[in-house]
Design a protein around this nucleic acid. Structure first.
Lengths: 212, 212
DNA sequence: ACCTGAACACCGTTCAAGT
DNA sequence: ACCTGAACACCGTTCAAGT
């Protein structure tokens, strides 16, 4: 059984014919957990309540997730996988277009994810930062951040971005995009001004990244 | 009894002669809660455990805070008051110096606060964003954000920053600073590179804010 | 292999009662 | 005015037992 599979099918899952006494409890648990996470926050998430909703005994989740933290870690991992796919999709759609447009596409995709699933994104960062984080989770996070790093590397090859360690070069631009995403997630930004703000931020970032 | 007073004295409090059976339980509770918050996170904070640490019955906190959420809200409010004082201090120390230096001082103070008390800062934003947030808390947040807004307004008067609604004008720069603070708080940034990153970010922000 | 039900040690909140 | 102790309804986790 692979978490990747669970994560990948999480969104498209159909809940046909309630699996009674057996079935794909792990995936169903993750689905319900994610909804509870966005609706009530990680602190209020109750394993017993999830089990009740699904119609299974409170001890059943134990078969699939060792404890509450393990369930949250699986949720975070599935979040990274979906974020990676989202970012990769945005970048590949903008392939061949000017650097500024590719960066804008990437930023919009990231901010869009943050606006739609703020609690999940927060959980993803918190869980990844946790010293007890699994290798699986760390690797999923690394794969995700490889997408923006790849955009920088490509732009260095075409001369749109100053040479140097891509991570060091891009960190200020990433901080801006992350800041916009974080502020959006906690409702500090009006959705109407979001697109314009991303545009301004990217314009400045591109200026800052350009060789002189 | 005023929350402002509690918050204001929180840092300087001396824990002389354990207040037994009575005393300033409210302030002591806030102190212990803040340490628990930074050490274990908001989710793991237990009122009963705090009461045990302080040596008081588990029902005693009820006298001072209606429930756990009220204690967290008081903590967030005290956080905003200290952040406001920190930012105001940084700005007033840099008074009279060039705009870029004042902005750098502000950014360093904000990022410094985020690095020292990441969980508190997160709680402050979460609590402020909560629909059930009190007027007191909202006003404390407004007073805090008035500091950076004042820096923008002053710089508009001296012609260092383009005219317009200070909030709209400064939001991209603030997103960058907030992004750096947020990433620092979750351990994504090496402390060694923090100062240089702030410098680069401010340099770009100043360029973006300057009238053309 | 997967799930149940009872049990344990915790928790937040309430409330009558104490000082 | 401030605190206690018992009570209630929850929670996460464990484990023998069921199918």
């Amino acid at each position: 059984m692979s978490l990747s599979t669970r994560g990948g099918t999480l969104g498209a899952m159909t809940v046909a014919a309630r699996p009674y006494h057996h079935g794909n409890l792990a995936a169903t648990l993750l689905e319900h957990a994610e909804r509870a996470l966005e609706e009530r926050g990680a602190g209020e998430l109750s394993l017993r309540e999830l089990a009740r909703e699904i119609g299974v005994s409170h001890a059943a989740p134990r078969r699939h997730f060792a404890d509450k933290q393990a369930l949250l870690a699986a949720l975070a991992e599935s979040g990274f996988e979906r974020l990676e796919a989202t970012l990769a999709g945005a970048v590949s759609e903008a392939a061949g277009r000017p650097f500024e447009e590719r960066l804008t596409a990437l930023a919009r995709a990231y901010v869009g994810f943050a606006v739609e699933r703020p609690a999940l994104l927060e959980l993803m960062y918190a869980t990844k930062h946790d010293p007890a984080a699994s290798d699986r989770l760390r690797e999923a996070a690394t794969r995700t951040f490889a997408i923006p790093l790849g955009v920088i590397t490509d732009a260095q090859e075409t001369g749109d971005v100053v040479p140097g360690d891509p991570e060091a070069v891009g960190i200020a631009a990433w901080a801006t995009i992350h800041g916009i995403a974080s502020m959006s997630g906690s409702g500090m930004l009006a959705p109407a001004e979001l697109d314009a703000l991303v545009a301004v931020a990217i314009e400045r970032a591109v200026l800052g990244l350009r060789p002189r």
